[in-house]
Amino acid sequence: MEKKTRGFSFYADIYRKILVQDLKTKMSYRADFIISTIGMIMVNLSGFVTFLILFRNFPTINGWDYYHMLFLYGFSLVALTPVQCFFDNNWNLRFMVTSGDFIKYCFRPVNVFFYFMSEVFDVKGLGQLAFGIGTLIYAWAHIGIPVTALTIGKLLVFLLTASLFMIALMNAAAATCFWIRNSGYVMVIMFRFKDFAKYPSSIFSGIFKFLFTFIIPIAFIAYYPSLVILDPDNVPLLSWLSPFIGILFFWLSYKFWMLGVRKYDFTGS
């Protein structure tokens, strides 16, 4: 029997095929599709309105003015899109683990993590993406950041970095279900934490700053990466390091997730 190798292109191809099929079925449930799109727009609008009201009352927060804050807001929205679109199945993990249904992911000759995540693509994230990009461009233009290949390149790299942190956070939170029963709370708490990402980390002091930087790294979801673009003359070391820390956190969360799979004894069946 010849050994079959499955590389990156294999996985990319499989993901694309599953995605196309999934989108096709989603479109066929038209009412469902429209309602969830409307819902998604409302959620984003209400978040945005809260933000505006806040800024009517506090024109600057710790030296950050309206457009800078808007930039940070848009940045975090875009950065949160991948976790929403591609890793949404994390929310279902604990149900599958307790019911024993999770075992089905172990019988295919592909990576369990990949196979599990590939099953769900959440379209709602796309609206958030559009909203985030709009906000980002608007703020970008008002701040007057030059549009060069370098700034755009930086933006993309650091957006990706920020996404990695959020994905890592949700992976780790979801994987706790392999050990503890009420892991739903852990996920909800982590998910709530992301709201702090919309504010400059410099408003937190002492213990919280440490906590949000190194323990639950939400400061990396928008604050540190966006400084590279907003304040290019004054970039802290942590910002430059963030792509590497992001990859490290992602890798750690993946290992943690897979460790859970190995450890799980599948007694649910």
Partner: peptide, 14 residues
Amino acid sequence: TENCENIGVVFGQR
């Protein structure tokens, strides 16, 4: 992974 290439599994209710 290699083992999975050569087996098939069916659970009656899942």
